[in-house]
Amino acid sequence: MTEFFHMGGYALYVWGSLGMTFIVLLLNIVLPLSQHRDVLRKAAEFHEWEGRDEK
């Protein structure tokens, strides 16, 4: 197991590459999802406001 994490002496490079990759990929999910929440909230405010206007 230690051998696996050691990566033949290249641990820093191999795990660094993998770690960096997953951080960037994660951002590509987290950011759009938080944007989605924001835009849905914006839409809800807009239409509620518009609906109140019609009544």
Binding site: I29, P32, Q35, V39, L40, A43, H47, E50
Partner: peptide, 24 residues
């Protein structure tokens, strides 16, 4: 990721439309 982003872009641009109102 493309679906997530395109979906946001779509909502953003079509915000005043009827279908967005329904969705909300």
């Amino acid at each position: 990721s493309l679906l997530l982003r395109t979906r946001n872009e779509l909502l953003e641009r079509e915000l005043p439309r009827q279908w967005v109102k329904q969705l909300v």
